[in-house]
């Protein structure tokens, strides 16, 4: 079986890889590139644990083929922080204890960044519907939503909500 040669950009770096036709972007990220921060929870686009940003759009990397990454720009959870400086969304998740087991967390971090890139001032309802494709079984979403709203406020330069 011959493999496809793919040239792409991941977390700002030029990357080349070989993949088989049926391999998903998630398979490539995890098994070929060792970027294991994106998780496989369902492989059917229902849980959001593999969420990445591809050319500015939030996608489930389990629903994208590796070959589709050709010429695109992909941001994974590994590319959200700026070196040792956490992104405000990451910091707020920690401050609000918005994670328990932490398995869904990479997907939520990426999805929240995509939300706030698109809508810096979401209502709680907008945040809940945006994140409805990301399953969390531990938290009941309460602290996640609080972290998202607080991160949004901070990124808008507003004082932290009580």
């Amino acid at each position: 079986m011959s493999k496809h040669h793919v040239t792409t950009t991941i977390n700002g770096e030029a990357v080349e890889f070989l993949c088989e036709t049926q391999e998903t972007l998630l398979d490539v990220l995890r098994n070929t590139l060792n970027l294991t921060g994106s998780k496989e929870g369902c492989a059917s686009g229902d849980c959001g644990a593999c969420t990445v940003i591809m050319d500015g759009k939030m996608v489930c990397s389990c629903l994208v083929l590796g070959v589709e990454a050709e010429g695109s720009s992909v941001t994974t959870v590994e590319g959200i922080a700026d070196g040792e400086t956490l992104h405000p969304v990451q910091r707020k998740f920690l401050e609000h204890a918005a994670l328990q087991c932490g398995f869904c967390t990479p997907g939520f971090i990426v999805a929240t960044k995509a939300l706030l890139d698109a809508n810096p001032n979401p209502t709680e309802e907008e945040a809940r519907y945006w994140l409805a494709g990301n399953l969390c079984r531990c938290t009941g979403y309460d602290k996640i939503i609080r972290a998202v709203m607080d991160a949004a406020a901070e990124m808008r330069g507003e004082a932290r909500a009580a």
Binding site: T36, Q90, L94, T105, P106, I109
Partner: peptide, 11 residues
Amino acid sequence: GVDKVTGRATF
């Protein structure tokens, strides 16, 4: 926590 929000944690 930091490992879990940056994708470093190993499951």
